[in-house]
Design a protein around this nucleic acid. Sequence first.
RNA 1: GCCAGCGUAGCUCAGUGGUAGAGCAGCGGUUUUGUAAACCGCAGGUCGUCGGUUCGACCCCGACCGCUGGCUCCA
Length: 640
Amino acid sequence: MITVTLPDGHERQVARGTSVIDFAAGIGVGLAKATLGACLNGSKEIVDLRSPILDDCSIEIVTAKSKAGLHVIRHSASHIMADAILRLWPDCKLAIGPSTDQGFYYDIDLDHKITEDDLGRIEAEMKKVIKEDTPFERHTVEREASLDEFRRAGEIYKVELIEGFDPDDELSVYRHGTTAFEDLCRGPHVPSTGHIKAFKLMRVAGSYWRGDEKRQVLQRIYGTAFPSKKELNQYLHNLEEAKKRDHRKLGKELELFMFHPTAPATPFFLPKGAVIYNELVNFMREKYLDYGYDEVVTPQILDVELWKRSGHWDKYQDNMFFTKFDKAEYGVKPMNCPTHALIYGSALKSYKQLPIRLADFGRLHRYERSGVTAGLTRVRSFCQDDAHIFCRDDQIGEEISQVIKMLNEVYETFGFDHLKIYLSTRPEKSVGSDEVWEKAEEGLRNALAENDIEYEVNEGDGAFYGPKIDFVVFDALEREWQLGTVQLDFTMPERFDLEYVNPGDGKSRPVMIHRAILGSLERFMGIIIEHFAGNFPLWLAPVQVRVINISDSQREYAEGVVASLKKLGIRVDAAYANTRIGGKIRDARNARLPFIAVVGDREKENGQVAVQALGGVDLGPSSVEDFGLMLKNKIEAREI
RNA sequence: GCCAGCGUAGCUCAGUGGUAGAGCAGCGGUUUUGUAAACCGCAGGUCGUCGGUUCGACCCCGACCGCUGGCUCCA
């Protein structure tokens, strides 16, 4: 007998070699029915439900309700899809077909180009496989025999996979279906194909074998699967909702920005979008005042000598734009840091002056490969709420703490109330010595520890000149967005030979902290458009109030209302057109106006406006003064 | 950059190898209106660009540009 511990601490004695499914059956018939596999001893790896339990252990039974169970379902769906594809196109070669957080995919090598129509055909074939409800059988196989079999079947990708495995590892295949579809797989899977209750194929896309762009291009078919139809429909519904908030769609509808083929991947902010853009800048400028930053304005185009000195020429050239004139070559700046290093170095500094915090809303240009750009979230020209802090070693902790404090204040203003934090370490393409990198990474770790911040490590994801802390927010749809970054850099000060006079009258090297909170304003705008679904908080709304008159007889009064609101600095417009009020209200609501002020004879009589807030909330009549005051208060408080 | 898809009026979208259509927006009238679309009329497009096939191309073919979904890359 062995002892198996359940998640709640209960212990059960069972015979050595009892299978997971039998163990579950011992607890309850319902649990046995729902069991898809198990995680042993806290491992994240799921074992098959038929695998025997050999030793004392803790166990967590995996059902469809858990995240792990969902992966089992999706992985099984991926096998069923591969089976269906092979039934339709027997010459198809299979690469890999894992589950993902969104669903599953299978990479296939097939001459026939899969179209949207084909997805329907594959789905129909999958339904047949599911209806057959044949069991998923696990078989361990011998390496050489398995290689032979896959070679014979022409499954070159499977062969390559096996050849890459450790020869001592056990190989397993899973088999299901009337055609005995078999795939190299660690598993586990659902007990039989009939357990797949709800799935849908989403799209087909290109991918590279093993993610290597020099290798074979494969077709990747994406699908998703859920334990029930209801959950699938909910997922599809959420996708629709996300589509409705797509910043590219709203940007066009709300006249915020546009693109033009003459400037690929470079936005034009229209008057309304520029209002939001400038409000964001104003907001950050206020914070800069609070936190002791000095704003600078720096050149756009600088001699390549500068970029050679900073390391950009070596490590960042592929992402830069260059131009030649007056017998010299120049690079358009992709980052502000070198210009700030020049400013720092332009005059002798004392240790008493530090820290020096230089902020810059300079426009940056980075060449992005044509296929990677997207709306406002990945552009070739953008502006960061960028700043560089030059400080002494002993100031690093406090400076980073202050940045984190400021960052939290900023994010709260937009309703981003929980964060995920990553520490990114040295990348392959980097400058600086090992010691310096170690020192910098330790500096960041210490700062995180001092602030009691939990974080995950992103190996090799740092900037070329230093490690960084990345701040990820969750938007209204709980999607993750990386916004802020704090980077600790000992390299740039060295390359630019930056110094300060220390108390002992000697020279010391300052540290440079690169930091941005909103990240790029372009990207940030894209994110908040989707976060707020275009319903901006009052302080950001391009037009804050629309005055609507009921008929011409209140036109003059309405113009007076507009004028007095304008006087208060409120962004107001009006709909004086001679049409019915219902239509004008509708237009205002579609344009996401935060407030609508209706004036008819009653209001004209009493010096009032009838106020409607976003979403059709009727706030009733109010004097023009009170209304204006109410707006001013909300704006100044940056109320969400 | 690679794979696939897409590109018709300002917007959303129909459409066919015989030189284009709707709704909304716009403009002009009529209507003077009380909280999500008043009515009538007018105008608006070398069908992304260039080339080819064809008696004839918006439609078929090719190249290019742009966009979208992915891959790779990535603040």
